[in-house]
Write a protein that binds this DNA or RNA. Structure first.
Lengths: 165, 165
DNA sequence: GTTATTGCAAATGATTTGCACAAGG
DNA sequence: CCTTGTGCAAATCATTTGCAATAAC
């Protein structure tokens, strides 16, 4: 886990008159233990597996807190649950490409995109705050070679692809 | 309502071996009667007000059909319900700017954005299919003048701003 | 000691679904 | 006819919430 997080949250908690608890620390540690996206339920499972008896409600409530503190960001991957992205601290303005064949999610940054969108925003008479770009695309590999390593991998691993329910 | 829609849906229905019904016609007419975004429930209300006894389930099912036929597009405005956008036929690749002050949604097109995103997609080894850009921004008017006509309007009209529940 | 936090289970709210009946082709 | 579509009410499913018990500070 990146070092600054507990501190940043501590600061946020102090500022809002909240309290630091064991549950919150544990959930935060779990949330930032990998750079993978996760849903609330997935995080709840992860927390549970680490032999902890933290409740589902507390996981949801802590996630809301982290989002408010801007340590975690909600993203929409097109299934019907909120996905959380722990990588905005490292890459404050990255975007997502979702492969419609294999479901793989690729994160990327691009200064040109940011700049262009900012310009457009100002031209429309607004002050830019945040932008969310999701690109849906299909595998060149699958199209050209008839197979996509990631598609196969996701089949083997049994990982569900993020599709509509 | 734009003229091509019933035809395009008819074609879709034929191709999939489905049936044309009075309910579907009526729902489609309602959906495309304005260029405003709407939720399933809002459309259901609209349909109901036109003195029709079409059921909620049929509205949901027809919406799914229209999305599949690519006549309607689902967008995510950050509240917890799916919003439908009827304007993609006219502007096949427009984007959305949402004002975080007043909730106003502005649609805009920009060829540069499209092109740049396509380039990035290819550079990442994918073939572009669709892109969704949502810009969150704040009112210059509110910041400079201390008031935003739209914010006031939305208060007066009692329209709920699209915020998290 | 106060006040915020937690766990539990029940509530919510949008969306979906099973089923019996109705209607398109 | 044969199959797809509809209405209804019940079911889902992620997420939220009321409340009594606990734990920060």
């Amino acid at each position: 886990m990146e070092s600054g997080i507990q501190e940043r949250l501590a600061e946020f908690i102090r500022r809002k008159g909240l309290r630091r608890t064991g549950q919150r620390d544990f959930i935060i540690k779990s949330a930032f233990s990998k750079d993978e996206h996760f849903t609330a339920e997935e995080l709840f499972d992860r927390v549970r597996k680490s032999s902890s008896d933290i409740s589902r409600a507390t996981v949801y409530r802590t996630l809301a807190l982290l989002v408010e503190a801007d340590l975690l960001r909600e993203i929409d991957l097109g299934d019907n649950q909120t996905t959380y992205d722990p990588n905005f601290l490292e890459k404050p303005s990255h975007n997502h490409l979702v492969c419609i064949d294999c479901g793989r999610v690729v994160e990327f940054e691009d200064a040109h995109i940011d700049l262009l969108n900012d310009c457009v925003t100002r031209r429309l008479g607004f002050r830019p705050v945040r932008q969310t770009l999701k690109i849906e695309a299909s595998c060149e590999q699958l199209r050209l070679n008839g197979r996509c390593p990631n598609l196969i991998a996701s089949r083997l691993s049994g990982k569900r692809l993020r599709r509509k329910r």
